[in-house]
Simulated scan of single mutants.
Amino acid sequence: MWRSLLSLRQASQRTISTASRRPLENRVPEKQKLFQEDNGLPVYLKGGIMDGLLYRFTMGLTVFGKAHTETFML
């Protein structure tokens, strides 16, 4: 019984294979160029379509929440 517990403990302590790690590409310079470009957009919209959608969704929730709160305050 102790042998099976010891072998289980040793197997659980082994690391998963690290031979297949891929080197990550450094994309920071690309992002810096994108965000430093002077194209008239505010920084919170320079990330693309998803930033625009998230901004509009947030503004919609804010307006809806404000209108909803004011109806209960009257």
Rank of each mutant, 00 (worst) to 15 (best):
M1G: 03
M1H: 07
W2G: 09
W2F: 12
R3W: 13
S4T: 11
S4K: 12
S4L: 10
L5Q: 08
L6F: 15
S7C: 06
S7E: 14
L8A: 15
L8R: 14
R9G: 06
Q10C: 00
Q10G: 01
Q10K: 00
A11L: 07
A11C: 09
S12K: 05
Q13L: 11
Q13E: 09
S17Y: 01
S17L: 06
T18V: 13
T18C: 13
A19F: 11
S20Q: 01
S20K: 00
R21F: 07
R21P: 03
R21T: 12
R22M: 03
R22F: 02
L24A: 10
E25I: 12
E25H: 10
E25F: 14
N26V: 05
N26K: 01
N26Y: 14
N26D: 13
R27L: 08
R27E: 01
R27V: 13
V28R: 15
P29Q: 02
P29V: 00
E30N: 06
E30A: 12
K31C: 04
K31F: 05
Q32D: 05
K33N: 07
K33T: 06
K33A: 14
K33V: 09
L34S: 02
F35L: 08
F35H: 02
F35Q: 05
Q36N: 13
Q36S: 10
Q36H: 15
Q36D: 13
E37Y: 04
E37P: 06
E37R: 05
E37Q: 08
D38N: 08
N39I: 09
G40A: 01
G40L: 03
G40E: 00
L41G: 05
L41Y: 08
L41R: 15
P42M: 07
P42R: 10
P42E: 01
V43R: 00
Y44D: 06
Y44F: 09
L45Y: 08
G47T: 13
G47S: 15
G48Q: 11
G48S: 11
M50Y: 09
M50T: 10
D51Q: 10
L53F: 14
L53I: 12
L53K: 04
L53P: 05
L53G: 05
L54S: 09
Y55W: 06
R56I: 04
T58W: 06
T58F: 15
M59S: 10
M59A: 14
M59P: 02
G60A: 14
L61E: 04
L61G: 11
L61I: 10
T62H: 12
T62L: 11
T62P: 02
V63W: 14
V63R: 04
V63E: 05
V63A: 14
F64H: 07
F64L: 09
A67T: 10
A67S: 11
A67M: 15
A67E: 14
H68Y: 14
H68V: 07
H68F: 10
T69D: 13
T69A: 15
T69S: 13
T69P: 04
E70C: 13
T71I: 15
T71C: 03
F72P: 01
M73E: 06
L74S: 07
